[in-house]
């Protein structure tokens, strides 16, 4: 554990809580891609199967359980509780275009051809692209509420901090997880365009982020 890793995990947690609170308080999930949230729930489910097989630390176990619970709560709020506010007409990204290649890749490129390893790899690859329905939705409607952009900012910050964590771990422990690092870098690149808009539009302006 290093400061980048801890800050990354905290950013991830903050992002998820921001989204959950936004939906809960406004009683609306307008502007939120339910598809992205389902993909994140699948990511956590397939990655954290090791909760049943290996104990790493209390921190690790608690965080995994919290991420799982919060992601399922988010999906519940979007598709059940506040279903009538869900903007399905603009949440039209075809997730099969993500799921099929990600499934194929996880069978081809993994550390071992076992169900657990393939599912872990699948979760890493899927996480890299899971935000695409949300970004697609913003592009389609041309705007995002500022609270939604704060959510995306913390999600992107989490990814950037994980890269710093890997650089740190590589130099101090010789740790290098090729699958996680390559997908993590790809994932972070998706946020670059958004980061630019966030700084120029949201932080300097106020209210909604509108696309040029």
């Amino acid at each position: 554990m290093n400061i980048f890793r801890l800050a990354g995990d905290v950013s991830h947690l903050v992002a998820i809580i921001i989204l959950l609170l936004k939906i809960w308080r406004s009683k609306s999930c307008a502007g939120i891609s339910g598809k992205s949230q389902v993909l994140f729930a699948i990511v956590f489910t397939t990655r954290y199967l090791d909760l049943f097989t290996v104990y790493i630390s209390a921190y690790n176990t608690v965080m995994k359980v919290v991420f799982l619970a919060l992601s399922y709560a988010t999906v519940y709020l979007i598709y059940m509780r506040f279903r009538n506010t869900y903007d399905s007409e603009n949440d039209t990204f075809r997730v099969e275009f993500l799921l099929v290649p990600v499934t194929g890749l996880s069978f081809l490129e993994n550390y071992a051809f076992t169900p657990m390893e393939i599912l872990w790899t699948f979760s890493i690859f899927l996480e890299a692209v899971a935000i695409m329905p949300q970004l697609f939705m913003i592009t389609k409607t041309g705007e995002a509420e500022s609270i939604t952009t704060h959510y995306l900012f913390f999600l992107g910050l989490y990814r950037a901090l994980y890269i710093a964590n890997w650089v740190w771990r590589y130099h101090t422990e010789g740790f290098f997880d090729q699958i996680a690092v390559v997908s993590g870098v790809v994932q972070t690149i998706f946020y670059c365009d958004f980061f630019y808009l966030y700084v120029t539009k949201v932080l300097r302006g106020r209210g909604k982020m509108t696309l040029p």
């Binding site: 890793r5 995990d9 991830h12 090791d50 290996v54 790493i56 630390s57 690790n60 965080m63 995994k64 991420f67 550390y111 071992a112 076992t114 390893e117 872990w120 994980y162 964590n165 290098f176 997880d177 090729q178 996680a180």
Partner: peptide
Amino acid sequence: KEETDVKDEL
């Protein structure tokens, strides 16, 4: 990295 390595990251 080996399969038996513990994946300690989230």
